[in-house]
Write a protein that binds this DNA or RNA. Structure first.
Lengths: 334, 334
DNA sequence: CTGAAAGCGCTTACAG
DNA sequence: CTGAAAGCGCTTACAG
């Protein structure tokens, strides 16, 4: 009792495979009576079309790859949100999400799978400034959309968070609340395209307002946030407002303030770039700007699906507008 | 210039498709000289066998499904660890990991994909006591392995963390350090098989040692941990040792202690069930028992691969031995 | 509205 | 050691 095939159904309904196929796809009209017979046969046999066979015949795989390294502790919240949204969006369009996690052999695995025709399209996460994966995909002629962007994005579709706008928002809110002595704790600009862009945006925001520029490098971990903020607050005791890249580091800043006897937000205001489930682990609700990674994933997936559908959809380059989130770590300067 | 096929290679090398196929698979001997010609042709044409075609012909899909709902904020650390390990393990065996995230339509999606022959096997995460997904897979005759277990696991393979042993370990360590007034903050026993097992293990551990039983329900979030612990510590001021299910809640307990002016570990000791990247967000290093979710995922994947390989591998039921992790939140009672 | 047939790109007995 | 051919389970022009 192995699986029923389209031939079994056709035989039982007294028609040819072609007619069964067309009732299923709706690509050509079928008489109501014939259709009824076929549907009955399908039900009786418990027939399910084989995806693999459909794909061989149709020349598509029905699967989309999502390259997203899962080894980075810093992006836990982002990872689950982005993956969850992409999976749900793809599933409702009938596509399977094939996960590519490995950072090291990421390119090789991706290349293997696309070359072997297993993937109709690819979503690329954790994009770096010069991302070798883009050329692999472009060479393979396979549609792909970046979550993020590289330094040269001509001829590619991407959906990125608007980190420039987000940084500007943070500085503006702090300044409006009377803060003049700011600092920006950020990841090394060489580490990612986003980090680099954030630093430049911060420099511009300060220059425009003639603010002193203090921007120490700070890895995105809680431990690093605590250390860097601790050192900074002792050396530059006049700082009243902090912009921090990421919730992990922001939580570390709260720990540092705690140890120094500084109250947040009375003595020190803190705003954070990004809002994910990680924020729920903070001792106070973080005031932050939501970069909306979920929305980013949704739009990137939609764009990819669009390109898979017709094929003649042009490139789309989208920036997701950040949203301010009122928390409990920003107050007017005293 | 579309992709080269096996026929192109055969033509160019002056052999038949069969010979090309066999040089690739090694399933029958090929003369060295012939092999050289074929390999040259493959290189010149940049030929890659089509996975889809191979699968149709061979009757396998080369893909493994991983059902793991990504919506639960509480299991962020576990999710990324488990997915990362499973993906890497599968990739090195040449299998693709197809992600099924949705909790609600999880069963339906899984059923659809398995019925359509897209999945050779399935890894089932976030298993509940009565998990409807197991019957779907069993009916479909598709090999699967649980990460966790249900209430009746006969005829199924699973790899679970040994939560009973982990709870016992926590209680024992606290008691050895002189703590006699304990409490266990745990998720509702009805919520998952693991939670239920943990509660019973705790009850046994206390009964055996004639300890007072205090075990309030506490959702796995930081907010809940803070609230429940705050209430408990005010009402039962004599408690000196806490066992907490999950790092999110444990971090909340630390916040509560902080607000009540209790020092950890001097005034209050805390041990936590589970160790993931979430622990790095805590203000102090948590003393905990590592349930080793990564190891769990690795073994579950290996067992599944074994069953896919030969097919006559019997059921395997494995418990992962927990490991104690010394942190900074446990001290001898004063 | 429906059928007969070729084809998608492989694998695998069956012969030799 | 290699070839000729059937078959995996579908889809899709081409006819009627």
């Amino acid at each position: 009792m192995s699986r029923a095939t389209i031939s079994d159904v056709a035989k039982r309904a007294g028609v040819t495979k072609a007619t069964v196929s067309h009732t299923l796809s709706g690509k050509r009209p079928v008489a109501a009576e014939t259709r009824a017979r076929i549907e009955a046969a399908i039900a009786e046999l418990g027939y399910r079309p084989s995806s693999v066979a459909q794909r061989l015949a149709a020349g598509r795989s029905g699967a989309v790859g999502f390259a997203y390294p899962l080894n980075a502790d810093e992006s836990l919240g982002e990872a689950t949100e982005v993956l969850g949204v992409a999976e749900a969006t793809l599933a409702s369009a009938g596509y399977a999400l094939v996960l590519f996690g490995g950072a090291v052999d990421g390119v090789a695995a991706l290349q293997t799978f696309t070359e072997r025709g297993l993937l109709d399209g690819v979503l690329l996460g954790q994009v770096t400034s010069l991302d070798s994966r883009t050329s692999v995909l472009a060479d393979g002629g396979i549609p792909f959309v970046l979550l993020g962007r590289t330094s040269d994005n001509s001829g590619m579709s991407f959906v990125d968070t608007d980190i420039d706008e987000a940084v500007e928002m943070c500085v503006e809110r702090l300044v409006v609340s009377g803060h003049q002595r700011l600092a920006f704790l950020h990841e090394d600009a060489r580490r990612s395209a986003g980090a680099s862009r954030a630093v430049h945006a911060y420099e511009r925001a300060c220059a425009r307002r003639r603010l002193r520029l203090v921007a120490p490098v700070c890895p995105a971990s809680t431990r690093a946030g605590q250390e860097v903020a601790g050192r900074l607050l002792q050396q530059q005791g006049d700082v009243t407002g902090l912009v921090v890249g990421g919730e992990g580091a922001a939580i570390g800043v709260l720990h540092a303030a705690q140890h120094l006897g500084l109250r947040v937000p009375q003595d020190l205001s803190l705003v954070c770039l990004g809002k994910t489930a990680i924020g729920n682990l903070a001792p106070q609700e973080l005031t932050c700007v939501d970069l909306r990674h979920g929305e980013q994933a949704r739009q990137a997936t939609d764009i990819l699906l669009e390109r898979l559908g017709e094929g003649n959809a042009g490139d789309q380059q989208v920036l997701i507008e950040p949203r301010w989130h009122e928390g409990a770590t920003l107050a007017a300067v005293r």
